[in-house]
Nucleic acid binder design. Structure first.
Lengths: 245, 245
DNA sequence: GCTTTTCTTAAGTTTTGTCTTAAGTCTTTC
DNA sequence: GAAAGACTTAAGACAAAACTTAAGAAAAGC
């Protein structure tokens, strides 16, 4: 009944750091899955790409916070992608490759990569390096990372993971929290149920599911308990939900 | 000890962090220079040492805040120095080595090193790791800013490392103490288990771990023994722990 | 080197959020 | 205004997270 064709996640594993998007460019299906799993465990968003061309498509159409890049790829080599990336600007890149000779490492680091992990890699090491690199970039380049989300009288302290409504703190479950954060990243944007489900649960959406409805309802109850006068979340009939502006 | 006979500073070039002295133990002249340059860019004092014996001389005659240590050295191997250092006490050490095999890494970290950078290294990474390590040591060893942390009727004298609850002194183990201090630096902030573990243990977190739970439980017991009326630490299900405000 | 303390591991128990089901309410369309 | 479709609400079953306890391993102290 509940099977997960793409990503293997334990139940209860979900995503809070909606903001961080990581692209995983790796043609081997198993390794790609493993990498995505590691990333999601750290509460980042992971997007698999299985070829160089696919990767480029993602890179051109969306903003990415980090790229994990295999050097051996069909369609377009990792080196070419690296080249394009460094022309483009400052997206941090970690190279993942079986070529672990010193020379390759030096070359790739010269041509714009920020770190290098050789296969076979250690799961913890991957996780640690991703964290470290993100931290570095946040500190040096973008101090603009938003720590507090605000909408009307709702405030979310993303760092502390605390939510205030109308000045009162409310305690949400993880799912409720993830939904609210998602909505608040784009007020006024309508999130379809399938969108919402896939973002919060990291699982493909089967249409016959009432789960989102239930959690949405619970979230609304908690919000309106804190401030009965305002209706924060609006249902767009047949489309989805959004924050009322 | 307010003068620096070894480092040459241009006129007008001055150092804000007068206090921080870093010893760079590395026989390769170019690499040593590069490392010193990185360090000075961060406004710390850097002292090159080109052999194991030279390094020991410096270590015995002056107080150092951090040591960058190459493992391959003439005169005395890095391992020996590391050994001496850890006998001596708590000077933070970052190993710099070409031996980047996993096993070496684990061994050296076990025998007292605090971090590990493999050659060829990334300039920014070195800088970031130095900062991070100094920050870590400053927080735990020399809390020059705040000497006493207070929350409700808990008081921590960071200097003396003594904890009072409800006026009574309680004795905590190292881990319990570290957890409590971390929580008290940001009351109301939710610390996830992985966060907590990585801060207190300085190791990457394996999800299937129960140690945090156990220590949390022990800590709670000690706190509630001192004052049964108050519940200090709150569990946020699926998110982590925090101090109740 | 031995003793004592502390940390970790493991197993069993309790608590709590999540999912499902099903009945009820509201919208839209004809 | 009735029927169909879409959404809400509530309750019970279940599974996952958190807690407790105890014992063995590791570290610290003597």
């Amino acid at each position: 009944m509940k099977h997960f064709p793409f990503t293997i996640l334990d139940k209860g594993e979900f995503n809070v750091n909606q903001a961080i998007n990581i692209l995983v460019v790796e043609d081997d299906n198993d390794i790609n899955q493993l990498l995505c799993k590691i990333i999601k465990k750290s509460e980042y968003q992971a997007q698999p790409a299985y070829s160089g061309t696919e990767a480029m498509m993602y890179l051109e159409n969306q903003k990415w916070d980090l790229v994990l890049l295999d050097l051996m790829l069909p369609g377009m080599t990792g080196e070419e992608i690296l080249q394009k990336l460094s022309e483009k600007g400052s997206i941090p890149v970690i190279i993942i490759s079986a070529k672990n000779e010193q020379q390759t490492k030096i070359n790739t680091l010269r041509s714009g990569a920020d770190d290098f992990i050789s296969k076979p890699f250690d799961v913890e090491e991957v996780s640690a390096r991703i964290d470290s690199l993100l931290r570095r970039y946040n500190h040096t380049n973008e101090p603009t990372k938003q720590e507090v989300l605000t909408h009307k009288d709702i405030e979310i302290d993303l760092e502390a993971k605390v939510v205030y409504v109308n000045g009162v703190e409310i305690t949400l479950t993880v799912r409720e929290y993830a939904i609210l954060v998602l909505l608040m990243t784009s007020p006024n944007k309508v999130f379809s149920k399938s969108n919402l489900f896939e973002s919060v649960w990291n699982e493909p959406f089967h249409g016959d599911d009432n789960t989102v409805n239930v959690h949405m309802s619970n979230l609304r109850n908690k919000l309106s308990k804190a401030n009965p006068d305002v209706e924060y979340i609006e249902t767009i009939w047949g489309m989805g939900y959004r924050l009322k502006t």
